[in-house]
């Protein structure tokens, strides 16, 4: 059987540096994720995990280094252009559109760039109506799959923390993603819901999506990830399967010392 890691990587990050003024939050990181693979990133607070993810998603412009998506250099692309190439993400502090209903949150995701187009909303209204109908159907499916149907007309700001995470993931699934970036996706989620989310992440990866996941809870990392990268002080200090990484001396020092 072909292991996911053997495929040509979907995203390649080469020697990436991200700095905030004098602080180098990410200091020369090289990683890659293949389609269908879940790469877990662990590391202490302030290790630079979120900054790495933001550079891949386009929220932060890296100081140096390169990010390739499907072999194409996207380092200089703004986030909305990367989104159009199949990158979706969740944020460490949930990013729901608070004064939109859950259903509208999904519609915005489903329409994407067409939703933001003034032309599509006015002159191209007919094509837009078709797209909206398709998106609404997909939204209805997702609402059923995530058991959120009763909340579909609820403002997202009225949801609980766990439900907001669900909405973020569902928004990603509205978009047929190629690469999914998850920043601490189980924080604030109750065990029962977290289990459902973990199953979903595996299911998403199984459908051929590359998943880059930052996670604190080691159980979740062990269960969901194919491979694990450990970061400390902006650098990768260990890489391999969960078991390999946990054996590593460097990791023990970073966590205990």
């Amino acid at each position: 059987m072909l292991a996911p890691g053997d495929l040509r990587p979907l995203v390649e990050v080469c020697d990436l540096v991200v700095s905030y003024g004098a602080v180098r939050a990410v200091d020369g990181v090289t990683i890659s994720v293949a389609p269908g693979e879940v790469l877990g990133i662990v590391g202490p607070n302030g290790a630079g995990k979120s900054s790495l993810l933001a550079a891949v998603g386009g929220q932060l412009r890296p100081t140096s280094g390169q990010i390739r998506l499907d072999g194409v250099d996207v380092t200089k692309l703004p986030p909305h252009r990367r989104a159009r190439r199949g990158v979706v993400r969740t944020f460490q502090d949930t990013s729901e559109f608070g004064r939109l209903t859950v259903f509208e949150n999904l519609l915005v995701a489903g329409l994407g760039m067409h939703g933001a187009s003034l032309y599509a909303a006015t002159v191209g209204a007919r094509a837009q109506a078709r797209r909206t109908a398709t998106a609404a159907e997909r939204a209805a499916e997702l609402l059923a799959r995530f058991e959120l149907e009763p909340m579909r007309d609820t403002y997202a700001m009225e949801l609980s923390g766990g439900q907001r995470r669900l909405v973020e993931v569902m928004r990603g699934l509205m978009r047929e993603p190629k690469l999914m970036l998850l920043d601490e996706p189980t924080v604030g989620v109750a065990p029962h819901l977290s289990e459902q989310l973990r199953r979903e992440y595996r299911r998403i990866a199984a459908s051929g999506v590359a998943v880059l996941m930052i996670e604190h809870v080691l159980e979740v990392v062990e269960e969901v990830s194919d491979r694990v990268v450990v970061m400390d002080n902006g650098s990768v200090i260990a890489e391999g399967t969960y078991d390999q990484v946990m054996q590593s001396q460097a990791v023990r020092e970073a966590y205990l010392g």
């Binding site: 386009g58 986030p79 989104a83 973020e168």
Partner: peptide, 8 residues
């Protein structure tokens, strides 16, 4: 940031 990350 989320809107941009969804293609807007």
């Amino acid at each position: 940031a989320a809107a941009a990350a969804l293609g807007c």
